[in-house]
Design a protein around this nucleic acid. Structure first.
Lengths: 354, 354
DNA sequence: TTGTAGGCGTTATCAT
DNA sequence: ATGATAACGCCTACAA
């Protein structure tokens, strides 16, 4: 129970075993190059001393950390509570683990992402939800850190995972319109904090898709029926309540995330509305929960898990310098019709007040 | 543009600015000790060169990483999809970020946690769901890495966050029994993989609590009515289906996690059962979703977020050597009665077959 | 206010 | 099969 004795180093082991540091290093990293007996003895000595190679020193000498980072502008705590991000992280984690890499979450330190990056020991980063022209993205590029963009916008010469937000959103809108809905409330993401007024690219694309759907039906979106909220269950619920108090009486909701959609369904119930007979709801993402709500949620499926895996694969290719085909065909989205949508009532209430 | 040019070092900056390495270092770490003009000039030069201090070298010289690790026996991917773990991580992340630390997830490399630890650059670890006598825990202790145990068992001289699993489970059981239920299906965690046959301590404690509740009512658990499943929505659903096919006809379900409870509710609906009139369901954890299911879920609340924060606080105290009061009063649990439980029907079906 | 020199613990190169 | 020595990039007494 030595307490705070100094941590043994490779030199201590070398001394105790009567060999050189090189030999000890070999015992751990290239056991094949050593006489079996020597290797064994060294490991015994190391164990008895409680020695293990110092990871940081190892990284410095190797000039690689075998760790990749996930970079987001949001606070870590909101991230884990966001089902979409959690699922994405799961995809990333799967690929990372398969490649024998470590995973680090990089978030703003004292509000500064740059500072966070400055302390992160990673070989490359996956950047989520940041515009390619964002300050911090430029920073990473200048620093020369390998990087893959996700949920961002496409720029040439910059690997980025694209998904078909516009197409998916359009399908969602068309579905609702074809069911006869004309009073549609749109629940949009709130622009992420600390983003310097930059419009959230994903929200913009999805809105564009909704618009396209409306236009195809000869209609157009009304600004009053677009509400921004945090992409959470509570956020969606609050937004729906707000719209109700403002006198809006939608027959359908188009939510940019499943979390918001679930919140809207919950809020609707509290106002005595039945889903889908009184109110249809369409989400986005197709998180696991969407199959398990009551009624199950009609939503736009995107390959969240795959998105994470592909980001890692590309990033590691970038790190290894093995420039593989990073041709950016965008990942497809598709509408999944479940039980939260139904035809609009014959005479949908069109009033905007009372 | 430059492609693969060598990364600039502190020496390059020193040369370009016509000062010594020390001065450059001061410019970054102790700006106060420098003439303002000098500091400014150095920063300019550094920027134009694209220099940033190398995090790994920094760690080596400082002998601290300013990063803490979360250690779990599970695959990272299952972890993020588990709402309870996600919420716990959020709590950890909150505290970590407030302390200016980084966060790293450590998971088995090639099936070995020890190998994962060997490569992790952390000042200390939070160990989740591992028995104090687990091989890997012993390993961490021997290595002398500061450590806080969570969802584990209490041992003297080892900081660990305790929550009142037994008491909470007992409350849940008593609630159901007092409503007249006698045919109760228990959904238990599956023992985590790679745990070497070691019983999962949390599951054991909760089962003990259920038992205590039954005993207090003069009853006892029947083994046939305890089913193990993965702690997920799908796992809970599958388990309920299985029990139904086995001819079990419970009037109530006692699930060790909210995820499993939600799954059971979903499965019950598919068998034409209404919750709570035909089947009462009680969960455990009180995740955010529990308030938003339909019907909302009666469950045992535990302070998940707080659990994460406290783990970090203690760990950092350990790292800093500021031995604060780590007196282990266990965090309280309490029953939250919502809408998923109701009195049992007058004549509960007691048959175990058909 | 700034510079000199040694150390942090490891791996890699090149001998022997 | 093993060893001496020089990186790796930074920090920090201590000296000037």
């Amino acid at each position: 129970v030595g307490g705070t004795t100094k941590r043994p180093t490779i030199a201590d082991v070398a001394d105790a075993a009567g060999v050189s540091k090189t030999t000890v290093s070999f015992a751990f990293n290239r056991p094949g190059r050593l006489a079996p007996a020597t290797a064994l003895r060294i490991h015994d000595v190391a164990d008895s001393l409680g020695y293990r190679p110092h990871p940081v020193a190892r990284m410095l000498a190797n000039r690689r950390t075998r760790t990749i980072g996930i970079l987001t502008p949001q606070t870590l705590s909101v991230i884990f509570e966001n089902p979409h991000f959690a699922a994405f992280s799961a995809g990333v984690a799967t690929a990372v683990q398969a490649s024998g890499y470590g995973l680090q979450f990089i978030s703003p330190v004292h509000g500064s992402l740059a500072r966070g990056i400055g302390w992160a020991t990673v070989d490359g980063v996956i950047v989520v939800g940041l515009s390619p022209r964002h300050r911090e993205v430029e920073h990473v590029r200048r620093v020369g850190l390998p990087m893959v963009l996700v949920d961002s916008a496409a720029v040439p010469d910059q690997p980025s995972i694209q998904i078909d937000d516009v197409g998916g959103a359009q399908l969602a809108a068309e579905h609702l319109l074809s069911l006869g809905h004309r009073s549609v409330l749109i629940l949009s993401f709130e622009p992420p904090e600390g983003c310097g007024g930059e419009a959230d690219v994903v929200a913009t694309r999805r809105l564009t898709g909704y618009q396209a759907g409306f236009r195809a039906a000869g209609l157009r979106l009304r600004d009053t029926w677009v509400l921004a909220a945090p992409s959470t269950i509570a956020g969606g619920a609050a937004a729906f309540h707000r719209s109700w108090e403002d006198g809006l009486r939608p027959t359908a909701v188009l939510a940019m995330s499943d979390a918001m959609a679930v919140g809207a369904m919950q809020a609707a119930r509290e106002h005595g509305l039945a889903v889908p007979s009184d109110l249809s709801v369409v989400g986005f993402d197709d998180i696991e929960l969407a199959r398990f709500t009551d009624p199950s949620l009609t939503t736009v499926h995107q390959p969240i898990h795959r998105k994470g895996e592909q980001a890692v694969e590309w990033l590691i290719a970038l790190i290894d310098g093995s420039r593989r085909s990073m041709a950016g065909e965008r990942l497809a989205t598709r509408l999944v019709v479940r039980s939260s949508t139904a035809p609009a009532l014959a005479a949908p209430p069109r009033t905007e007040r009372g």
